[in-house]
Nucleic acid binder design. Structure first.
Lengths: 330, 330
DNA sequence: CCAGTGGATGTTTACGTAAACATTGCCTAG
DNA sequence: CTAGGCAATGTTTACGTAAACATCCACTGG
């Protein structure tokens, strides 16, 4: 910086002002400084900057090994949104979702050059962590709502599930079967709860739910069972991949979709439009979730806010060919 | 740090020594300092550290919007491996693969707290960038080999394709058709080249390749065409998703796999084991690619090495039910 | 018994930046 | 014509750490 100042014939403070876009610098001076910067290839030293400013302009993101497409898309949106606000994103990988690993990530976090943290994981692991987070603000995108203790941004799982069930009921189906996600997942649990509640509210009897583990393979196995249920005309699968397996099983068993059985998925993964038939599903707006995480965490940093809350991102029913009225043997 | 020093009754330098695990500190003193650190909740300031040490202990990763599973898995491996070496990972998202975006990422990079950069993208965008990278070492995982100008780590695309073709020839097929990836991709190009070369070396006539765009949908369309080729008994698809679409098309047309047609994919995505039938495919070791990227970049930093080279990560043929001898009407 | 040696610890300093305060010089109002 | 004000720029200082150097002290060997 001193070199630039000398070359431009100004003080280093003026260089600093130019570099940070402060007002009160003549246009002439600014140009000279910029020219000198270019000539010397000057790059501000971000370590010194951070030291002086007391902030890193960096957000940390803790997430499980980028396993699910949802997490990945959210992370991507976080990175993009953070960049727009002039923030970088540092990744804190947690290899396996064990308590030890989470604790390890949290303690590493203490030494990390990070102003705030966004946690993408189920909240019970956060709660059970023995290592506390350093006093940096945090937003949690969790498969749970804990708006009383953390600031939460999440997809409106319940609303999406409700829309899926209502869509099928509106088409004339008597009831809706559910291909649920694994027991440990709060997202799966909330989708299942909303499915159950919506049916009950509509005066229908919920059939026993079938459980999968999110994988297409588990959906296939569940599908073989559902294909044998004579009065099953509509299924709400807790995610698109299980719906894929379900479709294959139904096809194998000669149950036509949607003529014999209607299927709705959840997530709207890119492939779902190419399923056979194209899948009606609940679209999740991961980009919006990521954006809100970043804005939430930044506003908390500014206001030093302590009150928490939950922001739900609405879903959208994407209607494709896998759903229709019952018994429509067109 | 000064507070800790005072509480422990030592100088701040001793605190520094303890905090960095330097020798020459009595066990007694060390314990006292550690106790004081705990009591005060001391966390070393990484900005000051970086300023003093002249390095950030952070790697930057430039990649396209985490679109493909391969990139994601590689990124994950990079993050994990970096963490093991005491390095953090900062993400530089490039929203769309245009030259402008890449230039933007590079210039942002200049101000970023990063010691080195790992670039996960096709090398021609790197070459065409008008903004040059600051003098930090770089490893490029590209859909191309450019070991003369950059240090490259990549999957052995050619070897994998060769194995796929040979596997089919060994089973007794006269020749192997190819469902290729999009023209713009060097990975697709190299797989196609190796397919062609392997057939030619074996004295076979390569049929005209069919092109897809990596998507299952494009594989399906290509599959409808291939199903009508009477002498097509073996297909090598350039990725698993296109193979999925291909399988569906063949099934629709009543061509049995593997009895009538054998299919080999590339990538070994998790779902491929659950395809109908389970897909024989070429497994890519993304974790190894990521690990080698990190180690490569770190060793270059240490040695200040300037010579480049290409490290190829071997693939592995995963044999499943989608391949068999031709005309095996078992 | 003392010089010499080496391990443990303390003191000084600089890393690059930006906030706070100081200075300069020009313009305007009385 | 001059005091006052303000915009543009310069000077000083501190941010938290760790390298380099300085000091202290206990122990060893002659």
């Amino acid at each position: 910086m001193a070199d630039v100042a000398q070359l431009a014939g100004v003080s280093s403070q003026t260089v600093s002002r130019v570099s940070n876009g402060f007002p009160g610098v003549t246009e002439d001076t600014r140009r000279q400084v910029l020219a000198a910067m270019r000539e010397l290839g000057y790059r501000p030293n971000s370590a010194a900057r951070a030291l002086r400013r007391g902030e890193f302009r960096t957000l940390g993101v803790i997430t499980f090994s980028l396993s699910t497409m949802g997490n990945i898309r959210t992370l991507e949106a976080i990175a993009t949104s953070a960049a727009q606000h002039g923030y970088a994103v540092t990744l804190l990988p947690v290899a396996v979702p064990t308590q030890d690993e989470v604790n390890g990530a949290f303690s590493r976090l203490g030494e990390l050059a990070v102003d705030a943290v966004i946690v993408i994981m189920e909240i019970h692991l956060l709660d059970a962590a023995t290592v506390s987070l350093p006093p940096g603000v945090q937003v949690v995108v969790a498969d749970s709502d804990a708006g009383d203790r953390y600031t939460v941004v999440d997809t409106d799982q319940a609303g999406g599930a409700r829309d899926a069930v209502r869509h099928l009921l509106d088409l004339g189906h008597d009831t809706v079967w559910h291909l649920a996600g694994p027991e440990g997942s709060f997202a799966a649990q909330r989708r299942a709860n909303a499915w159950h509640a919506t049916l009950t509210e509509a005066g229908r009897t919920p059939p026993p739910p079938v459980r999968g583990d999110w994988s297409a393979e588990s959906g296939y196995r569940a599908g073989l069972r559902l294909a044998d249920e004579p009065d099953c005309t509509a299924v709400f699968a807790a995610n698109d991949q299980m719906a894929l397996g379900l479709l294959r099983a139904l096809h194998e068993r000669g149950r036509r979709v949607p003529d014999d059985i209607s299927v709705v998925g959840f997530d709207d993964i890119p492939e779902s439009a190419s399923f056979l038939p194209p899948l009606t599903t609940i679209h999740q707006d991961f980009a919006e979730v990521g954006r809100l995480c970043v804005e939430g965490v930044l506003s908390k940093m500014r206001q030093d806010g302590t009150e928490h809350g939950t922001t739900l991102v609405p879903t959208r029913l994407v209607r494709r060919a896998s759903t229709g009225a019952p018994g429509s043997s067109r």
